[in-house]
Write a protein that binds this DNA or RNA. Sequence first.
DNA 1: CGAGTTTGACCGGCGC
DNA 2: GCGCCGGTCAAACTCG
Length: 159
Amino acid sequence: MSDSPNLRSPDSPDMDFNDQSDFELSEYLKIDEWLGDDPASMVHGAPANYFYQSNEADDSIGSSSNPEGPSRHAEGGKEKKEVKERFAFKTKSEIEILDDGFKWRKYGKKMVKNSPNPRNYYRCSVEGCPVKKRVERDRDDPRYVITTYEGIHNHQGPF
DNA sequence: CGAGTTTGACCGGCGC
DNA sequence: GCGCCGGTCAAACTCG
C-alpha cells in the first residue's frame, strides 16, 4: 500500500496539481505514534519508530455473527484489545480526499476544540475491512492535511 | 434505484 | 457523580 501504481484522481477539478506532484516526490512527514490530543502532551521529538504489526491471526470476514444488536454482549468477552496500527501522514495538499487507491465512505464529521477545522472520519467501503481513515487539517498550517490510517486492508484493493 | 454523502444524536471513557 | 471530549451509528437527502 505504500506505493500505488494506479493513481486515480478523477476529482480535483480546479485543484492545482502542483501540490500533488510535490506530495508525490517529497514524501510525507511521518508522524508516528501520534497520539496527541493535547498539544502539550504531544511529543514533537518522537523518533520514527513506526512498526508494522501484522496480526493476521485474526479471523477474516464473517467472524462477526452479530451484525446488529443494541446489546452487543459477546459471550466471554475476552476480545483482545490490541492496539491497531496507526499511521499518520502530514500531506501538503489542499485536497483532503486524497485517493490512495481505495474506496472510502465518510461516516462522520466532528469538530475538534483545538482546531477551527472539522475532522472527517472515513472507512473502507469494502466489507470486512477494519481499516479506518481520519482526515484532519493542520491547526498551524491549514494548507497541510493530516491523514491518519488505522488498521490493515484485508483485501488487495477495490478490485 | 443505489451508493455515498450529510447532519444530529448517542454512547463510552476519562478527568475533575 | 457529573461534565467534557472523541468516536460511531443512523436517518434523510443528493447525485449518478
